[in-house]
Amino acid sequence: MPRIDLDAYVVAHSHEWARLEQLVSTRRPDGPESDELVDRYQQVATQLSVIRTSAPDAEVIAYLSSLLSRARIKMIGARILSWQAAGRFFTEQFPAALYRLRWWWLGCLAGNVALTAVLMWWLLDNPAIEQTLIPPGEVDNYVNEDFENYYSENAQGAFGTRVWLNNAWVAAQCLALGITGVGVIFVMFQNVTVLAGAGAIMTNHGRGDVFWGLILPHGLLELTAIFVAGGIGLKLFWSWVEPGGLSRAKALAQTGRTMGTVALGLVAVLLVSGIIEAFVTPSPLPTWARIAIGVLAEVAFFLYVFVVGRQAFLRGHTGDISADLLEDRVATQD
């Protein structure tokens, strides 16, 4: 492609970029605006390809890449807000992503469960370490009151929202720190030590039944969601270390886009676990019934992955975003 006059090209198309900026800034685009957003996105992506090929300018390329990135997020959000798109997301994109990357998060789950068991066994075998975890004068209150009261001392709605946001933040950390590798391991280890420490203290004081009766109803699904985030985060790190047949940039971009799909889906999964923690865990139901609800939720998740996700994966879905939203697949013509 012959070189172009960049200044003239910018002048000729700046109004189109300004219009895309306006559409991206629209809080809730209506139907025509959403359609225009897609058209403008493809148009500007083509223009960016032209500039990259025939008149590379770092400042213009950075501006347009940022604008397209924001437009892509806006389009994904607009699609997910529609019932039909939400249905496709939860029956195709999200489960396919979970199934395709299953070995990463299953490995993370298995490793964390094993580490929790080892740490809890070690703490039970060394009860003196308990004093480093909680002041001796507070042990009785923690074991007999505080641990159990934590689930019922606040209004259920407010408590559920707080738990949901807190768990979403932990999952977000695992995903955001994925590129470092070490950051994911650190966040996972923090959660494991807290869980193992609480379990050991409660068990050492004859309250192990209370501990498991309160942890299992919501903890099975909640921790699985966190381990999914951790596993996908580690996959992002590995995409940088070993990109396979792709360039590192493309491998990271592909995994990063899939990670975005998983992040959106986990919001819903953690909402379910938060509802269980707020309304089932502290409920007057028998312990066996509360644990049964937690087990059913966990089984439902695995069926979702290995039945719905497998079928979606076999139909060709990968969890990546739609092809028409991929900037590098837009035709490079003016």
Rank of each mutant, 00 (worst) to 15 (best):
A110H: 07
P284L: 06
P243F: 05
S273D: 01
I232M: 12
Y142M: 03
I185V: 15
S49E: 12
A12Y: 03
K235P: 00
A110Y: 05
E277P: 02
P243R: 03
Q42N: 11
D5K: 08
Q93V: 06
L67A: 06
A249H: 07
D5V: 04
F186K: 09
R315D: 15
P136C: 10
N149D: 13
S34D: 10
G197F: 02
D57V: 03
W121C: 04
V307L: 14
A18K: 13
Y304I: 12
L271E: 00
N167Q: 07
T91S: 15
R207E: 13
D140L: 12
P284N: 12
L23D: 05
C108K: 01
Q47E: 14
W17C: 07
W83I: 12
A176F: 14
C174N: 15
L81E: 14
A96F: 04
Y99N: 12
L285F: 11
A249K: 09
T46H: 10
P135K: 11
E277N: 03
C174G: 09
F237S: 00
S152W: 00
V295F: 10
V182C: 03
T46R: 14
L124S: 06
H317Y: 15
T116N: 08
L221C: 08
E153V: 14
A200H: 03
A251I: 10
Q42V: 00
G245Y: 08
A8K: 14
L314F: 02
I232T: 08
R79K: 12
P127S: 09
V143C: 02
A300D: 04
G309T: 08
G77F: 10
T193P: 00
G160N: 09
R28Y: 14
Q42M: 07
L326Y: 01
G213V: 13
V194G: 00
G178S: 04
G107P: 11
